[in-house]
């Protein structure tokens, strides 16, 4: 069955909602990961891990708020995808989230390396 114009508009709205929810879900998961990593690594790496964890959680919360604000703005004041949307610019959110995720991975790798060194 061929979708109607109304169906396509609904799909567009659904895509916006799905993307906003995906941002929130992922941001919260990264925040939980950061807290768990902080708890796990504090004994090995000292107090600065707590600071790094707090900074990470703050970044993730900003990303969460930024994504929510961006999609709320799309919903309230329709406009085309713009290259300049301040902190809500998607490339900034993407870079922040990817950077922090890779950083968590690198710290995890360092922790595994320490465990390996302790085992030998």
């Amino acid at each position: 069955m061929t979708p109607t114009h109304a169906d396509r508009q609904a799909d567009s709205g659904d895509a916006t909602s799905l993307t906003a929810l995906a941002w929130r879900r992922t941001a919260l998961r990264v925040a939980v990961g950061a807290v768990v990593a902080t708890r796990l690594l504090t004994n090995e790496f000292g107090g600065w891990v707590v600071v790094a964890g707090l900074v990470g959680v703050a970044i993730v919360l900003v990303v969460h708020a930024s994504a929510s604000a961006a999609y709320l703005r799309y919903d309230r004041r329709p406009r085309r995808l713009s290259p300049d949307q301040g902190m809500a610019r998607s490339s900034i959110r993407v870079a922040a989230l990817a950077g922090f995720t890779v950083a968590v991975g690198l710290v995890g790798l360092a922790w595994v390396g320490l465990a390996a060194a302790a085992a030998t």
């Binding site: 895509a15 995906a22 879900r25 990961g33 995808l81 989230l97 995720t101 922790w111």
Partner: peptide, 28 residues
């Protein structure tokens, strides 16, 4: 860009991030 493609691209990125977290958590 088709806006649907741009949004799908963001969702794909987020799925990769969740995959990354899952793999890192598995290793740890």
């Amino acid at each position: 860009r088709n806006p649907q493609v741009a949004l799908a691209n963001e969702r794909t990125f987020l799925a990769w991030i969740r995959t990354s977290l899952a793999l890192t958590a598995t290793g740890a």
